Amino acid sequence: MRVLLIHTGGTLGMAPQGDHASLAPGPSLDLILEQVPELRELADLKLVVAFNQDSSTNEPTDILRLATLVRAESADCEGVVIVHGTDTMAFTSAMLGFLLADLGKPVVLTGSQRPLAYVRSDARSNLVDAVTLATRGVAEVGICFGDQWLRGVAADKVSVHRYQAFASPNLPPLAELGLSIQIHPHAGAFPRRVPPGLGQTFASELSVYAPFPGMAWNLPPDGTRGLLIEAYGAGNLPMGRADLQALLVHCRDHHIPAVITSQCLWGGADLETYDLGRQALDLGALPGGHHTRWAALAKLGLALGAGLSPEDVLQAFRTPWAGEPL
């Protein structure tokens, strides 16, 4: 079985650099495979380096190119593994989850909390598990980390030091990896409803509001095309504030989608639960439901980049494109 192994950088392949031994992008993919030769026992590996950088420097254009690369290079492969840094892995997995929903084969993102070059590291086991999952034929885009495989459009990074660094709060794991690999029935079982025409451009002109008590609700910068508001609890906001009302009216009048999600990891925003949420809804806000911040931003940027109308953007947050919880 042939697996496409793509390297993009991240902690897994980093090495100490400079007088202070700070971690920086390190060895090539070939050198990584020299340290984990057993990967070749699991699959016939096709090696490609997309780029080699800290994931905190990734841009949406990098991810669009990565999606194009996966389609082009995986035609003769049964699965794909992408080595990626943890800092923006959830955003990349959300974008790829939408862009590659119709690929029809496993796309497994993985990385590590400690470099492969360290004696005590999670890199080796994550790589082995990711390549193993890529041979199982489950058509999903997901993150393999620790002992779980998580749907990419539902995942978030929840720890900077635990080996179980990612969680999927509103969707059970696709698979659990222990003495055996248990793939759950919902893995790969979701309708593909991604609109045509996505992926040529990404609208990065987005503003994110993370409320705190007393925050000033300033209008977004000129040129802003979309807003994400991470509200309290089930979607509550201080709707008595004139500046917040003015912000939502501005967005409505200028056809700028204002999507409301929750600051909470578990659960989501239901703007009909409380009167404050209903007031935001009446001023044109869009309910983001259970979308993670990364899934919401990926969906918003891809939809606007493809030129979808305001009504189409509203429908996008009412319809699961690739198995994301609503």
Results as ranks from 00 to 15, higher is better:
residue 237 L to H: 03
residue 197 G to T: 00
residue 122 D to Y: 15
residue 277 G to L: 06
residue 119 V to P: 09
residue 15 A to Q: 07
residue 152 G to F: 02
residue 254 H to M: 08
residue 263 Q to A: 09
residue 300 L to T: 03
residue 154 A to P: 05
residue 124 R to P: 08
residue 317 F to A: 05
residue 219 L to Q: 06
residue 320 P to G: 02
residue 100 L to D: 01
residue 111 G to T: 03
residue 178 G to E: 08
residue 143 I to F: 00
residue 72 A to C: 00
residue 188 G to L: 09
residue 165 A to C: 04
residue 111 G to I: 00
residue 143 I to D: 02
residue 36 V to P: 07
residue 231 A to W: 01
residue 199 G to S: 01
residue 63 I to H: 00
residue 89 M to G: 00
residue 2 R to I: 06
residue 276 L to A: 13
residue 7 H to T: 15
residue 67 A to I: 04
residue 160 V to C: 14
residue 53 Q to S: 05
residue 157 K to H: 05
residue 291 H to V: 02
residue 297 L to Q: 06
residue 153 V to P: 00
residue 131 V to Y: 05
residue 253 D to R: 10
residue 203 A to F: 11
residue 246 A to H: 15
residue 204 S to A: 05
residue 203 A to G: 08
residue 1 M to V: 06
residue 149 W to A: 10
residue 147 D to S: 13
residue 127 L to A: 07
residue 221 P to T: 12
residue 206 L to K: 13
residue 37 P to G: 10
residue 278 R to F: 06
residue 224 T to H: 12
residue 205 E to V: 01
residue 206 L to R: 07
residue 41 E to L: 15
residue 56 S to A: 07
residue 160 V to M: 15
residue 67 A to C: 05
residue 11 T to K: 06
residue 138 V to E: 02
residue 29 L to E: 11
residue 91 F to M: 10
residue 35 Q to V: 14
residue 288 G to Q: 03
residue 261 T to A: 07
residue 114 R to S: 15
residue 317 F to I: 13
residue 228 L to E: 15
residue 181 I to A: 10
residue 314 L to H: 12
residue 223 G to Y: 11
residue 213 P to C: 09
residue 238 P to L: 04
residue 316 A to D: 02
residue 122 D to P: 11
residue 309 S to G: 11
residue 104 G to A: 00
residue 80 V to W: 05
residue 3 V to R: 01
residue 102 D to Y: 14
residue 13 G to W: 05
residue 20 H to D: 08
residue 127 L to T: 13
residue 170 N to R: 05
residue 226 G to A: 07
residue 160 V to T: 12
residue 165 A to P: 01
residue 45 L to E: 08
